[in-house]
Design a protein around this nucleic acid. Sequence first.
RNA 1: GGCGGCGUAGCCAAGUGGCUAAGGCGGGGGACUGCAAAUCCCUUAUUCCCCGGUUCGAAUCCGGGCGCCGCCUCCA
Length: 496
Amino acid sequence: MTLKLFNTLTGKLEEFVPQNPPYVKIYTCGVTVYDDSHVGHGRSLIVFDTFRRYLEHLGYKVKFVRNFTDVDDKIINRANKECKHFMEIADRYIARYYEDTEAIGVKPADVEPRVTDHIPEIIEIVQKLIDKGYAYATPEGNVYFSVERFKDYGKLSKRSIDELKAGARVEPGEDKKNPLDFALWKRSKAGEPAWESPWGEGRPGWHTECVAFVFKHLGESIDIHGGGLDLIFPHHENEIAQAEALTGKPFARYWMHNGLVIVNGQKMSKSLGNFVTLREIYTKYHPDVLRLLVLSVHYRSPLDFSWEKMENTKKVYERIRQAVEDFETLKGLQIYEDTEGGLHPLYNTIKETEEKFFKALSEDFKTQEALAAVMELVTEMNKVRNEAFKQKKVSKRTLEAYESAVNSIKNTLRNIFGLLEDVLPRCPVKEVVKKELEPASGVFDEELVNLLVEVRQLARQKKVFDIADLIRDRLKEKGIVLEDTPFGTKWKKMSS
RNA sequence: GGCGGCGUAGCCAAGUGGCUAAGGCGGGGGACUGCAAAUCCCUUAUUCCCCGGUUCGAAUCCGGGCGCCGCCUCCA
């Protein structure tokens, strides 16, 4: 099955052919570590994590690099505000980033470079750009890329230099020759982080780091470069300008951009203040619910975030989760040998679901359509489950078919979509999740709940339903939901 | 203003030239239950922002409107 991807560079859906199969080199822009990540960052991380898992599933040998920007104005500002060293701020938010992303099932990249570990590489690139005549140093100690020297400037964002000039602003005190020129190296002000360079003490501009990371860890020409839509201009345009000015080769052959997270019609961002951090999500919902929400929307479409939508997605998630967990209950039923021969009809649904699932992903990574296919399998599983529960026994043939369905979901939703890792057998519960899911009070006694359920059961047997209902209602107020099944009462904590 | 994208049921969201317009949430009806919950079944768009055009045939292609969003400044 050929994979088709929308390439921002050409504006077209294209067949994905790696430069050097089975190897795929992919780079995405990570976060600037000056604060906790929000849902907008989460979306980008989830999309590319899932995409990487999918490529691996297809048999590609993927080398995935995602950076941390650990020196920039915002980090310095924060450090000044807290009277801390900027590295302390960066380290703190990198540590928190790992907690946040682990919870949500985002695997670490193969290489996760930091700017502060690549200063010599960055200086080398800047020097080469000067040597080749694409960049110039100013007497003030800044170095700029001369945009007009690079003839393809604007090819990614589909802009011409003339158009850009019309809207360009010149900040007072800037020493650029052309307002469109961007900084490769900035002279440090007193007290700011500074590194020795041929142009005096300074620090790198934002756009060079990604080029340095790619060159060092992946090479001069990579297969896929990803990031949020908002990075197309100027960041990615500037990356292309620097890299291709140096090598003359295509920097990245496919450019993938995820759509932005929207809140009430506006982009979620720090500056607008309409953001929700990942940690805030985790205090209210299982992280998988957010992951599922992200994958319920095509990666290039805007994603309207709302708590109503989280609630909606939670129901979908619970439905999937329940179908998977019920395998354990089914196994506990009386198992009998079936006189009926032949393949169980569920196998057919599994086959169709997987076909639809992988077809959808192969067409510009349509996770939302792939998910719809799995929902149909869930419905079929529930039918089978209902029948067995009604009879209070299950045939060996049915049980095996159900297990195959669970395995299919492991293959699709767990291995590729990165969901359900703490539900399916032999997967350790993620510590962060466990911590966040505990009720704030921390008072929770399983034994006590079991006792109440037992008392209620007795009341039901004696048909004292007002007592039984009182127990059920009061437990619900405490966030514990009771379900009466043909073989006893099950209870679970609500995740919000 | 320029560039890019979008407009499908109460809501989210597939479908991009031709079978009965996926899937989910919500709503209505039913089965199950002591009552619930969960689950299952049925139902919920004669129609795809509007107006023209191409075609035997369009939500899908073309032209023109209208509306929304993003980028053009740091931003996943």
